[in-house]
Design a protein around this nucleic acid. Structure first.
Lengths: 190, 190
DNA sequence: CATCACCTACCGATCTACAGGTAGGCGGGT
DNA sequence: ACCCGCCTACCTGTAGATCGGTAGGTGATG
């Protein structure tokens, strides 16, 4: 209760960090610019997060907490919610941009978010496979097993996000994603 | 004839830059480390490329030249070659990593590669659509039009690359891509 | 053939600008 | 009185870029 002032501050800082990372990536982000956004000096910020990397870790952890809560059903998403997740994302370019930028950076050597993303994707693929199995059983109408479809599903989401971020007008992200789901669902048996 | 010494040098530098960008991204790359790799000082490097951004532009232009030549057939790739392109990529983590890192960075504000990627993706989608149309006509077996399938095809390639870069053992990139092509090709009519 | 003008390919020193991080202090609420 | 929240001052490192050179080559000319 009564979230302390300190906790509020931290939350503010994380939100600001999210923004700044979206705009310039992690490497390009500076503590000073994050601090400025919440009306602190850089050193004031370091009072809450002792290093830049600690701040990044906190951002990633919050993300983890976020998508381990909403939109999920105990052990994973439900298929129909995936759809609305993509639509939700389409309304939040900021967050999408943050994590797309981080994902891109994370493939470089020794990036502090690399492990996070590696594990996260393994987990996401497993979740996707579960969701698909629950929906379709061992073989999807399109012919794939859940395990083979999962990486594709994941790839489509990420790939579409990049195209959409680069040129929102050129790609109908939710529509394209639905197209893909229909592809997975296979011949409509009409 | 007799590529001048200078042209050779520039080519060496571009190769080194490609490596360094793969390892640290553009923002993380330093002129000094590129220079070192070709046995120059940072200032010596600046003799060939007057600014860091000029070097990046040259890298991107070379990429453009590269994939506007090999693997393409006049106006685009051929579908069966797409498949081998992915396999080719799977053997060159370095290059894939360079451009995945750059793509990720490019969605941040004012990134010098942003325009390049925006245009490039528009072009790639158009190419893909052409290829698909040539192969299947106005409607793919899976039910999509070439224009709607193109962004998906592109997204799958990119998305798989990230998953693969993060954990090569966890994703069979060429296999997954083939799965997707089969999905597009629709019911085998068997 | 020798000299002068000029170009290419660099390097050393240095400037400017931040960036991340440390040390210590100060004010206000409990 | 104490400690939390935050600041000032400062240090260190590093990055991109400029400046001014030097060494070697090439070509024209007297």
């Amino acid at each position: 209760m009564a979230r302390t002032r300190s906790e509020e501050r931290r939350a503010e800082i994380l939100r600001a960090a999210l923004e700044v990372i979206a705009e310039r990536g992690y490497r390009g982000a500076t503590l000073g610019s994050v601090a400025e956004r919440v009306g602190l000096t850089q050193q004031g910020l370091l009072h809450y997060f002792p290093t830049k990397e600690a701040l990044l870790v906190a951002v990633l952890e919050e993300r983890d907490r976020w998508d381990t809560s909403g939109g999920r059903d105990r052990e994973g998403w439900r298929l129909d919610l995936l759809d609305s997740l993509v639509e939700y994302n389409a309304m939040r370019p900021g967050i999408v941009q943050t994590f797309s930028a981080l994902l891109g950076e994370s493939v470089t050597d020794g990036h502090p978010a690399r492990e996070f993303f590696t594990e996260r994707y393994a987990q996401v693929r497993a979740n996707m496979a579960d969701v698909l199995r629950l929906e379709y059983g061992e073989r999807l109408p399109g012919g794939l097993t859940p395990e083979r479809a999962a990486p594709l599903l994941t790839a489509v989401m990420d790939g579409l996000q990049y195209q959409w971020l680069l040129d929102p007008a050129a790609v109908d992200m939710p529509g394209a994603f639905r197209d893909f789901l229909r592809l997975l669902a296979g011949p409509a048996e009409a």
